[in-house]
């Protein structure tokens, strides 16, 4: 399973090669890319920060769970950090499975879980300022993710 937090460019071919398997009839690839606007505001670029060791650990836990839930062959989850320009890939996911439905459904679930649980933050930077996004997609304090230690 390829899991990585990196400040280097994310490469789709690497992720696809990592999940390829003779048992897989489908490989689903998802790219999260930087867009030039958010909530009606123009975005110049994004700055991603992570708690890298924990982020990789949480990404691996989520990927293991996705494998189990959807019967996937393999997953690759890569998240980039640092300054990302419009159009660059911030999140790269590749999933292999015997049939396409598991790859599509598992991919959707995986992306949603990653956005809610992995300790990564984005800052939107525009002409004369910037702001950390603590968006509606993230968990509030009352909804700690599954697996919280008592």
């Amino acid at each position: 399973m390829l899991i990585r937090v990196t400040d280097q460019e994310l490469r789709t071919d690497e992720a696809v090669a990592a999940v390829a398997s003779p048992r897989a009839g489908a490989i689903d690839v998802f790219l999260g890319v930087v867009r030039d606007n958010n909530l009606g505001r123009e975005v110049g670029y994004l700055e991603y920060e992570a708690y890298p060791s924990m982020a990789e650990r949480v990404m691996r836990e989520i990927a293991e769970e996705a494998k189990e839930r959807f019967g996937l062959e393999d997953c690759a989850v890569l998240h980039r950090t640092g300054r990302l320009e419009i159009g660059e890939t911030s999140l790269l996911i590749a999933i292999s499975s015997a049939h396409r439905s598991a790859a599509f459904e598992g991919g959707r679930w995986l992306v949603d879980a990653i956005k809610k649980q992995v300790p990564v933050w984005k800052k939107e930077v525009w002409g004369d300022g910037g702001a950390w996004i603590e968006g509606p997609e993230s968990l509030g304090v009352q909804q700690a993710p599954a697996g919280v230690r008592e």
């Binding site: 992306v111 990653i114 992995v118 993230s138 968990l139 700690a144 919280v148």
Partner: peptide
């Protein structure tokens, strides 16, 4: 949770709402 005991030598991270992806 916030009532968890902190062991000696632990690393405690304060995690604002995440926004990766």
């Amino acid at each position: 949770r916030e009532d968890a005991l902190v062991p000696d030598g632990a690393t405690l991270a304060l995690i604002p709402p995440v926004s990766g992806g």
